[in-house]
Amino acid sequence: MIIALIATEKLPVPAIRGGAIQIYLEAVSKLLAKHHQVTVISIEDKDLEQSETVDGVHFVRMNKENYVTGIKKLISSKKFDVIHVCNRPLWIETLKESSPSSRFILSIHNEMFALGKMTDKEGEKCVSLVSKIVTVSDYIGQTITSRFPSAKGKVQTVYSGVDLTAYHPKWTAKGKQLRESIRSQLQLSNKKIVLFVGRLSKVKGPHILLHSLPEIIAQHPDAHLVLIGSKWFGENNVNNYVKHLYTLGAIYQDNITFIKFVEPKDIPKLYSMADVFVCCSQWQEPLARVHYEAMAAGLPILTSDRGGNPEVINEGKNGHVIHQFDEPTAYAKAINSLLSSEGTRDRLGKNGRTHVEGQFGWSSVASNLKTVYENAART
């Protein structure tokens, strides 16, 4: 098959500036290219060629201001069997006009079918034109079918994934070495490390963790919170919310470390230093990819019950779901419990690694997408 994978207009592929969709496309395209002819379309970037072929994948990068126009020109000039559009349902109608014989797959990574983002007419039109709508979680699928029942036969959850070879649990030789090295570099060798990875934004909830620190420190004076991230992908500019976090953090400077934006390729090794991973999302998260990363690194997970986050947690086996998602005390209680028992942390971490190996490696994601594409091409 001849396949086009179309990224949003936000960030380039490969994911040199970060981005869950960009990481997703970079990973699956390499695997799909082993069996099919694959083109990945994204916006241009000063550090990337406008056109190149890497690992069998042809990358085409276009001007952001004329992105959709450029895509239309490309897909009308080349016959693609399948065109996979990421997270932009309102592009489907105009792209279909440019390549009417192609089968369109739409992947939805956020609540893109919500009121305010499209009219009923636009949503129905999109549903009628696509062969399949793949979603990153059951939760996102339900946001579509609850508003557009006509989509029920087309919506299918295809969970995202992670590069299993890039993450090294502490019980492996590589993981032990990384753990000791990074802790030494950060002067955290004798600390119990609680890790947060994500954008420093209110919806991600890092302020909740900061407010939970006094209760954690009271029971575990050697606890240390490490927050990795910035206000936006690839940027270290500070806004008022980030300033607020830094101000709160200054009160507990012996128990907190901020690490600004880290390139995606350097993220995996940082997980190796941690003892507990926390996702404290306050919004209806589609399903944050940090869950896959934490499991791959062999970390026990505490996550909020928002959106699709709980779907990858087997309660009490690879982590715990925090139902009082906006209560610092709820996080403090769960974190303290885990910090008090290394045996429990190890058990949950090993179960998580087994879980991600069985279901969420990129090879599983690519295989699932390949089946979707092949079925669409046959219809």
Rank of each mutant, 00 (worst) to 15 (best):
E93A: 14
A114P: 06
L106V: 08
L95N: 00
F113A: 07
I75S: 00
K96N: 09
E93G: 01
K73A: 13
V68I: 15
S77M: 11
C86W: 10
S98D: 02
P89Q: 08
M62E: 13
G123P: 06
E122L: 08
L115M: 11
E97R: 14
R88S: 14
I83Y: 02
F104C: 00
A114R: 15
E93K: 14
C86F: 13
I75M: 00
N87S: 14
K96T: 11
K121T: 13
H109I: 02
S102I: 00
F104K: 00
V85Q: 04
L90W: 04
L95A: 01
E97H: 11
L74I: 15
D81Y: 04
N110I: 03
E65I: 11
K117Y: 14
K78I: 10
S98N: 07
N66F: 12
S76C: 03
S101W: 09
K121D: 09
V68H: 05
F104A: 00
F104P: 00
K79D: 14
T69Y: 12
N66V: 12
S98G: 05
G70F: 01
S77G: 10
W91V: 02
L95C: 01
T94E: 15
L106E: 10
R61Q: 10
L115S: 12
F80Q: 00
N110H: 14
I83S: 04
V85T: 08
N63S: 13
K78M: 08
F113W: 05
M112A: 15
T94W: 02
K121F: 09
S77Q: 15
S102K: 02
Y67D: 02
K64W: 03
S107A: 08
K121N: 08
Y67M: 03
L106D: 11
S107T: 12
P100K: 06
E65V: 10
S77P: 06
M118Q: 06
E124I: 07
K78P: 00
I92R: 07
S107D: 09
V82L: 07
M62F: 15
D81L: 05
H109P: 03
L115K: 15
L106S: 09
K79W: 08
W91P: 03
V85H: 03
K64N: 10
I108P: 02
W91S: 04
K64Q: 14
I83H: 02
R103E: 10
E65Y: 12
L95G: 01
F80I: 00
I105V: 11
K73T: 13
N63I: 09
T94Y: 05
W91L: 04
T119M: 11
L90Y: 01
T94L: 06
G116R: 12
G70R: 01
D81I: 03
H109C: 05
V85R: 06
R103P: 00
V82D: 04
V85G: 09
L74Y: 06
E93S: 13
K121I: 11
M112I: 06
S102Q: 04
K78T: 12
K72F: 05
Y67C: 06
L95I: 02
L115N: 12
W91N: 05
N87Y: 05
N66H: 14
L74T: 07
S101E: 13
L106W: 11
L115Y: 11
I108R: 13
G116D: 09
K72T: 08
V82K: 04
F80G: 00
E124S: 12
N87C: 09
V82H: 06
I105Y: 01
E97N: 12
